[in-house]
Design a protein around this nucleic acid. Sequence first.
DNA 1: CAGACGGCGCATCTCG
DNA 2: CGAGATGCGCC
DNA 3: GTCTG
Length: 613
Amino acid sequence: MAIFKGRSFILFPNNEVSSINIFENLIKNNGGKIIEYEHDITNASPDINYGYSHIIGLVNDSYLTLNNNKYEIYENNLLLNEMDLNKRKLWEFVKKNNITLVNISSVSFWLKVKKILINQDNIITITKDPGLHLEEISTSDSCNQSTSECETDIGDIINELVKCNSGSSKNLNSNLNNADNVGEVSSSGTLHGLKNEVIPQYNNEIEEDNKSISASSLARNTNGNELLIKTLDKLSKIHTIRGDEFRSRGYKLAKISVSKYPHKIKSAKEAQEKIPHIGASIAKKIETLLKTGKLPGLEIASKLESRKEYFSSCYGIGPVTAENWDSLQINSLNEALKRFPKIFQHDWSILFGWKYYEDWNKKIPRSECVKHMQIIKEELKLLDDSIECEIQGSFRRNRALCGDIDILFYKKECDDISDLYVVLEMLAIKLYKKKYIKCFLQLSKNINLVFDNEIQTTLQKAGISNNEFRSISLTNRPKLFLGAKLSTTIPEFDTSLYTINPEIDVKLHSEDKYMSSSVQANSVSHALEEYPCRRIDFFICKWSEIGASKLHYTGSGEFNREVRKIAISKGMKLTQHGLYQNDILLESFNEKRIFDLLDIPFIEPPDRQELKF
DNA sequence: CAGACGGCGCATCTCG
DNA sequence: CGAGATGCGCC
DNA sequence: GTCTG
């Protein structure tokens, strides 16, 4: 397919962002050219008949707004600030020669309809361009000037508007509404079904640790900060999904601090002065929140992220892939499969993430964890009764509901990990043959032997051929990831747990359901009686590292980060292998001694949700 | 005001 | 080919 | 995002 043959494209504001990058590749793969520098144009002289009509300018959708059904660049400075000198020159060129400008997601649409289709409504009009002159922008000084005018932050339009433009929420809303409509407009009505699909709304709290934090803190702190906590949580999630890890963390830490704060926050000033992790920016948001009861644009912003949230709830799909698919206006896993079968063929574990999407987003009651443990222990005894195992993770932290089951295996006075791995692999294979283990998420030679069939069946079910080489690790790993399911039905006394604590139900799109394991099982009225498939992780540790390992695998993740930060501040390093100073091992065997060396009191696992120093 | 923000395992991609 | 970067995973 | 040296 070379629908872009003979065409050249200029991407604005830059080519560096990953979501833009994917368009760049799409264009190249379909015969189009990318213009990056001015000389790319001057070298190729304009067509005698059509001038520069073979050149199309593409603008990233996030910089656009709708006005009377027409695209406009909603804040020129924002766009210009993201361009380097070359791009600014090309921008001048585009303006001077009236090069057609359209929103970049049109590319995705063109590929769908297999031709380039531009109508008047798609064309972006440049209004009130401040008309930066080349002489001006070529000095670095004035670049700085234009940035200081309104500190901008790539892609974070919402926050910027709140900050720079807090007076007018009108502007903000029109932009966001438009962004919400981008899919519809660029498809000019022809792809109407696309937008109508209902993206499932699920509970905000998918993550087990988050869930327990906010649940417990809400219980002990019903003092009126709930709205703020919820807002901070949303902001954190939005930035996680956008892949901005550190900004997301900023909000998350603020959220945790507010949860712990024992009073109702009465003013932004109070919050900023008394609560850690609240700085100028969040204080400003608090002010708006206290005054108006909401943060303009937040709802719409999180709606914009919902497609990405859907994708990244699937095992094997992270923020980058979700962002890529989202920017191509892919709405379902099935659509992604049709477009990029190779990804699924190669990253076959995503197919199992899909198959068990709903199951793996459910919580596990403690009582069920114990049952899994019994099965595994029993089988292990038969293989090697000198190997011991314990559940770590949220189970050891005494959570009523766990996200998955983490089992740590070790053997007294044994530091040979690959020795242990061999036994564990046998254990897993036996359990697979007994149909307790349903799937593996990575392969070794032996596992592939028993599991290959299942992979192939699953690939077929997805409608992709299986001629791809699958990489098989030869080394003995310290871990084994798998999915397993209790074959019995849920006993009477247990069902209350499943109904009183309804597991958070993350639902697949209807067109994605066909891959789901629960489709067959739940079609009968048995739904409640059968156990879901669970994520189970086997971890192996050296006997000499058992303290550090338990500390690591008990978590929580948040707790680990805090403790490790303390280690750093004392010039040490803490990992699952031990506590180090200048690469010299200080302690790895005794969990308590690690706390001692870090000069913090021993914290019981149930209190390791978050740090309380 | 620049730089850090946890640390590691595994698979894959990219580039010299 | 190997070193480093990237993406996703684990707590 | 905030915090630190």
